[in-house]
Design a protein around this nucleic acid. Structure first.
Lengths: 129, 129
DNA sequence: CTAATAATGATAATCATTATCATTATCGTG
DNA sequence: CACGATAATGATAATGATTATCATTATTAG
């Protein structure tokens, strides 16, 4: 049983994710944290992203291409823009009645993830002629 | 503008996906279709999966590891088993009120995907002492 | 039938992510 | 504080999934 030891690299990765509201890739986080800790390695970023995800402190969002990460684990959903590939937040006033779903299901549901696809506000507005 | 030409390989890939109710990886499909067309190449499977997805005939399910594919595009949702990593269908009596969601959102939502995480019936029952 | 070109199979290339390993940092304990 | 155990790091090699390349084959319109 290994005990966690603190590291400034891990702190910096978490701090970066919690300070931003986009949904960066591991590489994005690497580039940002390198501004603060120039010696940090990409491998260290990947390692700590995985650790932090395991701790439940961040969220990994699989998208079909590179995974995205989210430092805000409160209940909110995402939209993947089919035009610019960005992942943006959708603040949803609950509305999804998930509790009533797995009625006739002989398994256990512990969590869910909901991804919307479409066009983000930026792309929609910049496409106006 | 390129026009589609038919091929028995593509037909076989689609037929395989439509005949099964698991959610195979590209490799899984490759192994299955090779039973019918021994000369088929893995690259051809990937190519046609992408084509078929573009046609809207199949669904690609990103999972964080290898992508899964689904030959049934009707409205249904999936559960990823955290124990055995399989993806199983969840037949849901609608229940999700998705239409009312993107009210205060200045973008366009064209589709969504909902993934549940938990324990599938098989694993749940085999874990009983 | 023939020309045009889409599709194939084989394989090399790419890209994201993970494993390896020698070195360094952290932390409880004497 | 100093020590020893071990977790974390940085650099890089390795892996695994997916895509690109390219010469050859198959399909289709005319």
């Amino acid at each position: 049983m290994s005990t966690l030891k603190s590291s400034k690299q891990r702190d910096a990765v978490l701090a970066n994710l919690q300070s931003r509201y986009d949904h960066p890739t591991a590489e994005d986080v690497f580039l940002a944290v390198r501004e603060v800790i120039p010696s940090i390695s990409l491998a260290t970023v990947y390692r700590n992203l995985k650790l932090l995800e395991g701790e439940g402190l961040i969220l990994k969002i699989p998208t079909g291409d590179s995974d995205r990460f989210d430092g805000h684990t409160h209940g909110h959903y995402h939209l993947t823009c089919l035009n610019c590939r960005r992942v943006v937040d959708l603040s949803i006033d609950t509305g999804v009645n998930l509790d009533s779903l797995p009625r006739d299901f002989d398994g256990t549901v512990t969590s869910h993830s909901l991804m919307f696809y479409g066009i983000c506000p930026d792309c929609k507005n910049s496409n106006k002629k």
